[in-house]
Amino acid sequence: MVIKAEHEIHKRRFSRNLGVGLTLAGFVALVFALSVVKITSTGPVEGFDHAPRASLLKDTE
């Protein structure tokens, strides 16, 4: 038979762990949302994929 006596201390620990877990998850979600907003609202940006950027090339014509 498994002894499973849950002491009041375990409830308090669970409450604390759950609270911290949810807070951290919320913080991660918030930082992610903030990042998306900041990145998408910085105006026109130019993707750079190791190719010469057109805007930096001198006009040869």
Partner: peptide, 18 residues
């Protein structure tokens, strides 16, 4: 299974920190 009352110090609930 014995719980020492002194060990319970600092075992606050999340609501206590809030």
């Amino acid at each position: 299974a014995t719980v020492n009352p002194r060990d319970q110090q600092g075992e606050a609930e999340f609501g206590d920190y809030f």
